[in-house]
Design a protein around this nucleic acid. Structure first.
Lengths: 110, 110
DNA sequence: CTTATTAATCGTATATTTGCGATGAACTAA
DNA sequence: TTAGTTCATCGCAAATATACGATTAATAAG
């Protein structure tokens, strides 16, 4: 892809928020997060029973969530236990909170 | 792209949230939203002065935000005035609020 | 050691996103 | 009518994302 000649700068907040939003931008990843945040922690194996997708695909989505920092994995041979990353989860919540909390112009009279 | 044989079903909420998250997943779109939500409403023309990208690219991002319902456009010849879509903005806020508000298991003892 | 289980990674195919310049449509001003 | 302004759309190229099956790595069980 052609990029701007002078690479655009974004505030760290914008970059972080965009990164988290991208992680949340796929229904399967939302479902995974909901499962992990809800009832109980899950193993990948259980996810493949709940979500009708190939094991490799689910593993890929888990990797995306890991890289976004929203979850963490703990090796528990021969399984891997994935959990919400509490610290980053809270940070993501406040990022979105701040973003949506900003005042908006109700009437466009400008 | 190959899709699952039986197309996966998502709850409407998951689909909506994923759609909004996708709209928020690009720093430029976040910047645009911040500008629109903040000080004043903007015309596309003003955006091209602030954001160093081609006019066509900005127009594309505005279209994405429009289709996600986060903004609305009002033709004001020869310009177009874009504003936050208040109703959908609030809905998006509560979607994210509910999503992040769900209780998470603090300690993984499962 | 051999086999089974679990999950990551690789390779591949296809779809979508991103960005740009060029063009077109709609309107204004002269 | 003729320019000029504003913005959407088109067409292209390159980068990313998505999904799958096959393979690999690690471990446990026999």
């Amino acid at each position: 892809m052609q990029r701007s000649l002078s690479t655009i700068e974004y505030s760290g907040e914008e970059a972080s928020l965009a990164m988290v939003a991208k992680a949340l931008s796929h229904p399967v990843r939302l479902k995974i997060l909901k499962l992990l945040a809800g009832e109980t922690c899950c193993f990948t194996g259980e996810l493949t029973e709940i979500i009708p997708m190939a094991q490799s695909t689910i593993s890929q989505h888990l990797k995306a969530l890991l890289e976004a920092g929203l979850i963490q994995g703990e090796i528990n041979p021969p399984k891997v236990k994935y959990c919400i990353n509490q610290a980053n989860w809270k940070q993501a919540r406040s990022l979105f909170g701040e973003f949506f909390g900003q005042e908006t112009i109700s009437d466009c009279k400008c």
